[in-house]
Each structure stands twice: as C-alpha cells, then as structure tokens.
Design a protein around this nucleic acid. Structure first.
Lengths: 223, 223
DNA sequence: GAAAAACACGAGCGATTGCTCGTGTTTAGC
DNA sequence: GCTAAACACGAGCAATCGCTCGTGTTTTTC
C-alpha cells in the first residue's frame, strides 16, 4: 500500500530569499488586478504572470497551482482587513446610537471594498475556489456573530432565530449597497447615504434601547 | 469592397419541422439546467447537449453558437415572465396602500425567480454574454421606469434624480432578498417577509400620500 | 417512390488553459 | 571562490473548450 505523507510535516522546506518574497507579493498584486478585471475562472495564470511581468514558470515557483494564488490572496486581503478596519466592529462602538454606529461600521467597510475590488470578487464571485469561499465564510461568520452580539444588546427580547435572521438580512443589505456603489461609481456618496438610510430604517424600529414612548402601540416584535 | 448583407433579410430560410421545434425547446431546457448549475461560462456546450441527450452536432443544428443559446433562453424567460407575472406591475395596483402594493409585486416576482433559477443566473451572472445582458437591461429599465412611475405618485415632491436613486436602491434591495432566499431555501417565507419589511420601512417614511395621521408614524399593517 | 430538405450523429480540429521541465542565472553559506 | 539552493525563463504538453464536417437517417414535397 502507498504510505500517506504526514500532512503536518513541511513537505517543502524550501527557504525563500528576499527576492522571492518580493516576487510572491508582486504576483499576488497582479492576481488581484486580473481577478478583479475578469473574475477567477477567466483569469489565466499566464495573464497573471504577464501582468506581473514574469514568466509562467516563475509563477509556479511560488504557487503550486491557480487555486493557491486565490487562497493566499484571500488570506492577505483578510489580514489587511483585520489590520486596517477590524476595529470598526470592536466593542468600542457598542454604546453609540444607531445612526453613529452605522457610520462607524459602514463607512470603513465600504472604503476597504472600494480600494480592494478583488475582495468583492473573491468573496461573492460564483466561481471562487472552495477553499477561498470557506475562508471567507469563516470571516463572514465572525463578522456575523459580532453584529449579532451588537444587535442582541439592542434588541434583547427577540428570540435567537430572529436575531440571526435580522443579522443575515443586514449583511445582505450591505452587500446590496456594495453592488449598488460598484454599479454607480459616480454617485458613490449618494448611494452610501442611501445604504445607511436603508439600514437605519430597517433596524431602528426594532431596537428598544430605552422603554419606548407609550404613544406607539407595541411595535411589531413580529406577529 | 465587400458588400454588406441585408440584415433584415432572412439569411437562413430554413424551415423547421415539429421534431426540430421540440429539440430546440429541449435544448433550451437543458441549457437552463446547466446554466443554473454552473453559470454561463463554465457550462460547456457538450454538457448541454449531454443533458439534453443529444450529440454536440445536433445542438449546433439549432443554435449557431453558445451565445445564441443564452440569448434565446433569455428571451424565452423574459416572455414567460411577461405572460405570467407582468400584470403584477400593471396599473391596477396603483392605488393600493404600500404594504399591499409590496405584496402584489414582491410575491410573484420571488415566485418566478424560485421556479426559474436560470433567470437569476443570466440576469446577474458576471459572465453572461453582452446581448443577454442588454436584453435584460432593457427589461430591467422597463421595470425600473414602472416602479419609478409608481414611486413618483407616492412621492411627488422629490426631484427626479432622487426618485431614480430610490428606484435603483429598491431594485438592489429586491435583488438582495433574492440572494438571501437562494442562500436559505429552508427559511424562504421568513426571508420573504423580511424583504418586504425592509422595503416597507425604507419606502414608507418617504411617501406623503395623504397628510399623515398625527398619531404614530405610519405603521405597517401587516401582522 | 424518388429527390430534397431537415435532423442526428460523433470523431476530431484549432485555440486556449493550467501547468511542467530542461536549462540557465543569481544568491547564500562556507 | 566554489557549491548548492533558490530564482527565472519560455517552449510546449495534456486536457478541455467551442465548434465543424462528413456521413447516415427521417420527414416533407412532388
């Protein structure tokens, strides 16, 4: 029988020089450009190599296959996101009023997506490889739980299933805003405001931070 | 110089028999299945032929190329849409209150999309061929203008640019709901309600049909 | 019933893709 | 300075794609 290689052991103890490190980063940059231009499947490895002004053989010295390029690029984008904007969802903003919370969360997220179009392609592209999708799913679920936490403090009486649904909906609305801005780059600010308007009006009636004014009848905590 | 062929003239006066009509429809059905499974680009013509239990050569007896398959399928879907659900946006519903207008418009639209997944793929797929996209854009803009008309009667004082923006946003929200339901088929009804909640809360504060009752802000009459 | 047209087949062409491999150059370690 | 490893090249392989074409069968037309 063929013995199975030990997966945790380093199969390639290849040392990488500074030059190689630069080339790898350069290739990821090129991949981001090509991916955001034509998507994952249509992006040929030769095109990525050409974009990086490098031969196809050189590309495969740093990445075992096309999927690995997407995976590493995805990881790099995820890391950049955490470094730059992860704080937007930190606990610091928990006690803000909703409108300002939305400013604090939505603006930096849109900003990051505007500057890293490959992020959107790899996250929501229909043809991204499974491992990338999985990594983003993990990230997605972290963000989701974070939002769920925040929302839970705003609407403490709702059952958990409903909180989850509200959270999922909120994220879907955000994604819609992303698409909207991508489709209308010249009206970016207007649609950014519109997105926040949507989110505010959707979420505001549900939260009961303080005992609501007795005027309005018990708002719908669902039928 | 090469003379240009007369475009309106029939370049292929080929008569089609009943058998051929059936084959063509069968091929479109197969294409819808394959497209909705893997998207346009990844759908190989050989796979479509195989799905229809037909040889590749036979496929090309009815369609000049892969793009034409998508175009005809797109047209067929568009026509089906108009036949079955076009009335949802007809003038009949103009005087309904917002909540019922949303029911009348959103429900059948979601129903159609649920039963024709290829519709979504061809409409919003990133790799659909130009002519399909164009046809859907035309359809999209018709729907958009229709909604814009309806909205204009609800909010007559807004400047046109804003009305357009609200309309575009509304459609993007609908698309988000579509994705949401596609991602959670087991909670279809819940997310359907959630979508209508989003749309209602977004649109309701803007319309000034009648001088609003001085009491609470117009609540949603839905359960 | 015979000729023509439409339908059906499937091997395979040309182009493109992801990727390899033989070869040569640059750098690190001593 | 010498050796080995890392880096770089680019022609080209195997597989796949959209699509063609020669051939044979069924249907229409007369």
């Amino acid at each position: 029988m063929p013995e199975q290689e030990p997966p945790p052991a380093a199969p390639k103890p290849r040392r990488r020089q500074a030059r190689g490190e630069r080339r790898a980063a350069q290739l990821l940059d090129a991949a981001a450009v090509v991916f955001s231009r034509v998507g994952y499947t249509a992006a040929s490895t030769n095109a990525i190599a050409r974009e990086a002004e490098v031969s196809p053989g050189t590309l495969y010295q740093f990445f075992p296959n096309k999927e690995a390029i997407a995976v590493e690029l995805g990881n790099r984008l995820l890391e950049q996101w955490r470094e730059s904007y992860g704080q937007a969802l930190s606990a610091a903003n928990l006690d803000l009023p909703l409108a300002e919370l939305l400013d604090a969360v939505v603006d930096p997220l849109l900003e990051f997506n505007a500057q890293n179009p490959a992020f959107h392609v790899l996250m929501h592209g229909p043809d991204a490889p499974g491992q990338v999708t999985a990594a983003f799913e993990a990230f997605h679920s972290v963000v989701l739980h974070r939002i769920e936490e925040i929302l839970a403090t705003y609407l403490p009486e709702a059952p958990k299933a409903e909180t989850t649904r509200v959270t999922t909906t909120t994220l879907a609305l955000f994604k819609a805003g992303l698409d909207l801005i991508a489709a209308h780059p010249d009206e970016r600010e207007e649609y950014q405001e519109e997105l926040k308007k949507v989110l505010f009006r959707y979420l505001d009636p549900m939260l009961c931070e303080e005992p609501p004014a007795p005027g309005a009848a018990a708002q719908q905590p669902e039928a």
